[in-house]
Amino acid sequence: MTGRVIVITSGKGGVGKTTTSANIGTALAKSGSSVVLVDTDIGLRNLDLLLGLENRIVYTLVDVVEERCKLKQALVKDKKNPNLCLLAAAQTRDKSAVSSEQLKSICEQLQEDFDFVLVDCPAGIEEGFKTAVSGASEAIVVTTPEMSAVRDADRIIGLLEAREEIKSYKLLVNRVRPNMIQSNDMMSVEDVCDILSSDLIGVIPEDTGIITSTNRGEPIVNVEDSPAGKAYINVARRIKGEEVPFMDINQPTGFAAFIDKIKKLFGIKSKQDNE
C-alpha cells in the first residue's frame, strides 16, 4: 500500500492550516481511510490541541528523528476514531531539529501503513516550509478571501510549482462570509481562483463553531449541523476522488432570500448573478 502524502500549507499564518488539517484528517478517517496527521510546526504545535490529544503525547517527531523511539511509538491514536493517528511536533525545540531528508524518510515509512499522510505545514516560506513540503506529492493551499492571504498563497504556489515532487495542488478558500461578498466588502471565491489561476477543492464558510470546537479539542466535522463541518466533509470526499458539487454558500438567507425570490418573479437579476 502506498498512501498519498498531502501537505497543507498557506504561507500566511492564521488562515486555518491546522484547523483544515485536523478536520480533513478526521473526515477522511470517518470515511474509512487510515490517516496520519504529521505536525511539522515544531515549537509552535497546535494540532494536538485541536484534536484534544495533548495529554497523550509522550514522544514527538523530534524523538523519532533523533532515534529516541520508534516511529510507531510516537503515533498517538485518536480518542474516537482508530483510523486516525497523530505524529506530534515537539514544543520545546525549533524548526532546525528536523531536516528535509529526515521528514521525507518518515513520510515514506508512514506511506506504507496509511492511506493518507497529511502534513501540517508551519507558516512562512523558510526552513519549516521546505521541510514540510519535502515529503509530499500533493498540496492543499489554504487561503482566505483577503488580499494579504491571497498574495501569500500566490507566493507559495510559485514555490510549489518550482518543486518537482509536488504533482498537484488545490486551493481551499477558508473563512468565506457570503454576506460580505454580497455587499462587495469581500473578494468572492471566484475572484480568488481567478487571481491564483488554480483549481478549487473546497470553500469553507466562516463559522463561529470553529472557535468552540478548537477550544474543546473536538474537530468541527464531529459536530452535527455545522456549515464548516459539512464543507470539510465535502473536501475530504473530493480528495478521495468523488465529484461533489460545491455548496452554494452565496445562497442568501432570511429576508434577503425572500427579496431575491420576489426579484426573480419580476424578472430582475440579483447582484451576484450580474457578476
Binding site: 490541541l49 484534544g52 495533548e54 495529554n55 497523550r56 503525547i57 509522550v58 480518542k79 477550544n215 474543546r216 479539542g217
Partner: peptide
C-alpha cells in the same frame, strides 16, 4: 499538568478537563 511522569510511570490529565 498535562502529564505527570515519575520515573517510568506516567499519568495524563483526564480528557474531560477541556480548559488547559
Amino acid at each position: 499538568a498535562i502529564q505527570l511522569r515519575i520515573a517510568d510511570s506516567y499519568a495524563r490529565r483526564p480528557d474531560h478537563i477541556k480548559n488547559i
